[in-house]
């Protein structure tokens, strides 16, 4: 991926607009929307993690929902049993999920492509029944109910607004962290492995180290997201973290754009809002069949359409548009346009 080399005034402008939108959003929308946007931020966190793994290091995971379960249950159990403030559990959840991910990454080292997909698929499927089974810890089917997360004293915010700022703040920090990783030595190693393992090894990159690291990082992000999800809904149960969550994450990361920075943001907007609009689409009917509340069909169809028409996802489309805009401007200024550098 070619980086846009110089910071352009347009980019700074966009950043300012983004910041204003981010901060101002909860002041202009109602509670429901604010809460939904908090969920968007949670999914952004999870998707950044999955994008590091699948988009940058080229390893598929259908099991990141399981890592979210680790994070969510860590927070819920800690808060319920020890009564420590919920926000202190967020880093614990991230680290614990990261360790689990790292451990799972070790067998995953020997697995590529189809096999890795199979193993992580099995992980995603087997987590809910396992959570049910160990019910002394997890509360079984009933799950764990936590006290609602209240904004810190002295902040004049509603609960939803506080959740929104908390989740967006964490998502932003983790986004910048991932941005840094991708542009570091580690990120280059990830991409080298994605493009050709053989070539990566030949240039001295340790597959074992970087592949497990990618798994661990991705799981840590998922763990934080799971923790935030538990805090936001003040509830966890096994079905929250089932196969459909893992699939939704994959859908989000592919549709957002694999290996592109803003893919996670666009993907999570979709993952959160598509079910909402699918719910509203109950007016959409064929005969006696109502499409209301069934986002799966749209997910599936979108996934295939995006892969076919825009393999780089929504972020890829935005990036293409951006390049086209830059190119047109350059062309307008200089009589001889530079040749287009195709990737």
């Amino acid at each position: 991926m070619r980086r846009l080399s110089r910071t352009r005034p347009e980019l700074i402008g966009l950043a300012v607009v983004a910041a204003v939108v981010l901060i101002g959003l909860p002041t202009v929308t109602n509670q429901f929307f604010t809460f939904e946007f908090a969920k968007v931020a949670i999914f952004v966190t999870a998707l950044i993690g999955l994008n590091l793994l699948t988009g940058y290091s080229g390893q598929i995971s259908l099991g990141n929902g399981a890592f979210m379960a680790v994070g969510g249950y860590t927070t819920a159990i800690l808060v319920q049993r020890t009564g420590i403030p919920y926000w202190t559990t967020i880093p614990v959840a991230g680290i614990l999920a990261g360790v689990v991910g790292f451990l799972i990454g070790i067998p995953a080292l020997r697995l590529t492509g189809v096999y890795l997909a199979l193993a992580t698929f099995a992980l995603a499927l087997s987590i809910p029944p396992v959570l049910n089974h160990f019910d002394t810890f997890t509360g079984g089917h009933g799950g764990i109910v936590m006290a609602p997360a209240m904004p810190p004293l002295g902040l004049d915010l509603s609960q939803e607004q506080w959740l929104y700022y908390l989740c967006s703040g964490i998502a932003l920090v983790l986004f910048l962290f991932a941005w840094g990783i991708v542009r570091s030595r580690t990120g280059r190693a990830f991409m080298a492995i994605r493009d050709s393992e053989t070539a990566a090894v030949a240039s001295g990159i340790s597959l074992a180290y970087y592949k497990t690291l990618a798994f661990g990082l991705s799981a840590a992000y998922a763990g934080v997201a799971g923790s935030l999800l538990a805090i936001a809904t003040s509830y966890v149960n096994p079905d929250t973290f089932g196969l459909s969550l893992s699939l939704a994450l994959l859908v989000g990361v592919v549709i957002g754009g694999l290996g592109l920075d803003f893919g996670a943001v666009l993907g999570s907007l979709l993952v959160v809002w598509l079910p909402y609009y699918a719910e509203k689409a109950s007016g959409l009917q064929i005969g006696s069949l109502s499409f209301g509340g069934k986002p799966d069909i749209f997910y599936g169809a979108l996934l295939i359409l995006i892969l076919f028409f825009a393999p780089h996802g929504a972020a890829g489309l935005v990036q293409r548009g951006w390049r086209w805009y830059l190119l047109r401007r350059t062309a307008a200024r200089s009589p001889l346009p530079e040749p287009v550098v195709e990737r």
Binding site: T54, G58, I60, L62, G113, V114, A117, L247, L250, V251, V254, L289, S290, F291, K294, P295, D296, I297, F298, Y299, G300, A301, L302, L303, I304, L307, P311
Partner: peptide
């Protein structure tokens, strides 16, 4: 392979949804 896998996952969700729909 990654792309084809994701296509079959798309089919997975789509079929699941269509079955539930009908």
């Amino acid at each position: 392979v990654l792309t084809l896998l994701i296509v079959t996952l798309g089919l997975f969700t789509a079929f699941n949804g269509v079955t539930g729909l009908i």
